[in-house]
Simulated scan of single mutants.
Amino acid sequence: MAKIVHVAWADRVMQQYGKRVLHLHQKFPKVLPRIVNQVGDRAKTQVVRNLTKQTGLPRKTIVAAVGDPSRARPGRLSYEMVTRGGNIRLKYLDAKETEAGVVAKPFGKRTLYPGAFMRGGRFPDRKDVKKFDGHAFYRLNRSGTRITFARSGVIIPTEMTRGATKSAFDRIAGPLLQQRIEAAIAKLVP
């Protein structure tokens, strides 16, 4: 599952400035891509910062999920942040086993997952199981011979396109892009 967050500002620019933007791009082909990349990098910083708070995942996990964006260059004026991923396993959300189940921090809030487990044996003498590798599981049958990963409901691509992360992106990218392009037009194509 991949989602792309983008600012569709190009139509407004062409209506407002028309030939001046075209002339700027023809005369100085590196200016607009540089502006798009600078604004995109600043927006990416805000996306990572807000997505970390919003999901409850560590910053390094979010940085790896967002990855390197495809950057603007002459002839291609777009900056795209693409992320992939599914329902995050509890292991990555500071999971701890209790007698009632596993407690983790999806969306930054402590949540109990009743019936989930991370260790083997009977309470209170539970032991780490090496092949579990720190993951939390649910039993699929009564005997416990079939198990499945416990998942949090946190899906990075979905979270990237809503809430505080989306509003931070919209608040930074659109106005800053407009401001920088207006300044470049005023300076280079008066």
Rank of each mutant, 00 (worst) to 15 (best):
T111N: 03
K127Q: 14
I181F: 03
I62E: 06
D128W: 07
V36N: 06
R126D: 01
R126E: 07
G120R: 04
L93S: 04
I62Q: 03
G134A: 02
K19V: 11
Q179H: 11
I88W: 03
L77N: 11
Q46D: 14
S143D: 15
E159L: 14
Y79M: 06
R12H: 13
T158C: 00
K105I: 06
K60H: 12
G18V: 11
I156A: 06
T61R: 01
Q54S: 11
R20M: 09
P33W: 05
R126M: 06
S167G: 03
R76M: 04
L93P: 01
L112T: 03
A8K: 12
P29G: 05
A136C: 12
K127M: 02
K109G: 02
A183H: 06
T148S: 11
D11W: 04
T158S: 13
D170M: 08
T45R: 11
L93F: 06
R162N: 12
A64G: 04
R162W: 08
T61L: 03
D94Y: 06
K105D: 02
A164W: 01
G120E: 10
P69G: 08
T61H: 11
K91C: 03
E99T: 05
S78W: 00
R126F: 01
A72D: 00
K44H: 13
F107T: 00
L140C: 07
R12E: 15
T148L: 02
I181K: 01
I4T: 13
F149P: 07
T111C: 00
R20L: 13
L188P: 05
E159V: 03
R146M: 14
I185N: 08
A184C: 07
Q46V: 12
G144D: 12
E159P: 08
F123M: 00
V63N: 05
R59D: 09
Y79G: 01
G108E: 10
A104K: 01
A168I: 08
L57H: 02
Q15S: 15
G40H: 10
E80I: 03
H6Q: 15
K60G: 04
R139E: 14
L177P: 04
L140P: 08
T61E: 09
R34T: 15
Q16M: 11
L51Q: 07
R142Y: 09
V47D: 10
Q46K: 14
A95V: 08
G115I: 05
G56W: 05
S70H: 01
V7E: 10
R122T: 13
K91M: 14
T61S: 12
N141I: 03
A116V: 01
T52E: 05
Q54N: 10
R139Y: 09
K105T: 13
A95I: 10
A116W: 04
D11F: 02
R126S: 00
N50E: 15
R110W: 08
K53C: 07
G67Y: 04
K130M: 07
E159I: 01
R84C: 01
V82R: 11
L90E: 12
K44T: 15
F107K: 03
M81K: 00
G101T: 09
N50Q: 15
F107V: 00
S167H: 13
D94L: 00
L24S: 11
T145E: 09
R42S: 14
K166T: 13
P157S: 12
V129K: 10
K131Q: 14
T98N: 02
L112C: 02
T98L: 04
D125A: 13
L77M: 08
H23P: 00
I156L: 12
R73E: 07
P190D: 12
I147K: 05
P74G: 04
